[in-house]
């Protein structure tokens, strides 16, 4: 009986119910808009958490994949007139192939060097997007057409909310599945000690590459969704600060916790909206909250809280 609840999948139906009930609390499109941004960030954070939390590899360039996905579908559908679904698919392939190509050389590095390499990759992508103005519209951004499937146009906050909610459920399910598989166990071994994992016969390189590509494709998928949802993209999407935001979500929510990454995304997306009333103090309060969490809960919000609750119960 008890074991049933130890099953991480138990959170999935609860998440589904929360997502289904949440719109009852929304009274206007702005609320939906914030929720959609939460969902976008949540999927990216869940994907990034696989890499950071489970495989123990840092990436400071995930916004690069996010932006590359957004721009690939934007350019293919906007400039070359591809059907959006096809251009989204193409974007995922482009990002997947790029991530695969760079993963081997990059993941040979570790620690600061790995951070630097991913940082460089992200910045490169964002520079290319800003400078190739004839294709990308340059720093002022470009317009992206809406998605329509068999005459049904995916437009407006409500429709997008449900699409994003389903994407999140699928992403969480995939992530839990992956963690619970032999791959996940191998990854945790890599995280613990790469040498020991190798000695035990784990092909560490190929597992790391796999998880790098998976998390990059998660980011790219949400990049494409966000591009078609907002209808307008700028190079900020691929920028360094955006990458840092994603990493912060994972670390704040709690590394190696899928639901932690989710909570991290919720907090980091809604908090700035809540704090706008404080004007100049906004950044100070925001920073203080982040610092307090990291000082008092260095393992992140969710792992620390669950550990405390477990001890208490």
């Amino acid at each position: 009986m008890w074991n049933r609840f130890r099953n991480p999948y138990a959170g999935l139906p609860v998440l589904a119910i929360v997502l289904a009930v949440l719109p009852l609390a929304f009274s206007n499109p702005y609320h939906y808009d914030v929720a959609i941004h939460v969902l976008i960030n949540a999927v990216v954070a869940v994907g990034l958490n696989l890499l950071i939390g489970y495989a123990g590899q840092i990436s400071l360039g995930h916004a690069g994949f996010f932006g590359l996905g957004a721009y690939t579908t934007g350019i293919l559908s906007g400039v070359y007139g591809w059907p959006p679904l096809l251009s989204v698919l193409a974007a995922l392939v482009v990002v997947g192939v790029l991530a695969f190509a760079v993963a081997r050389p990059i993941l040979r590095l570790s620690g600061h060097y790995l951070a630097m390499a991913t940082l460089g990759l992200g910045i490169l992508i964002s520079i290319v997007i800003s400078t190739e103005g004839w294709l990308t519209g340059g720093p002022d951004g470009m317009i992206v057409p809406t998605i329509s499937v068999f005459g049904w146009e995916l437009f407006g906050e409500t429709r997008w909310y449900w699409v994003m909610a389903v994407l999140l459920l699928v992403a969480v399910w995939l992530a839990l599945n992956l963690i619970d598989s032999p791959v996940g166990r191998a990854l945790r071994a890599v995280h613990g000690s790469e040498v020991a994992a190798q000695v035990a016969g784990v092909n560490t390189i190929s597992y790391k590459v796999l998880i790098f590509v998976v998390s990059a494709v998660f980011a790219a998928l949400m990049g494409t969704a966000s591009a078609h949802y907002s209808g307008f993209i700028t190079p900020d999407l691929a920028g360094f600060f955006h990458s840092i935001e994603f990493v912060t979500m994972v670390v704040l929510g709690g590394m190696a916790s899928t639901y932690g990454a989710l909570i991290g995304a919720v907090i980091l997306t809604t908090l700035p909206q809540l704090l706008t009333g404080f004007d100049d103090l906004e950044m100070v309060i925001f920073g203080a909250i982040l610092m307090a969490v990291m000082i008092f809960m260095p393992r992140g919000l969710v792992p620390t809280l669950t550990a405390r609750l477990r001890k208490g119960s």
Binding site: G11, V18, V266, L305, T306, R310, S313
Partner: peptide, 10 residues
């Protein structure tokens, strides 16, 4: 209990 708390937090 922990799980419910977790959801409650969310």
């Amino acid at each position: 209990h922990a799980l419910l708390k977790k959801i409650g937090l969310a």
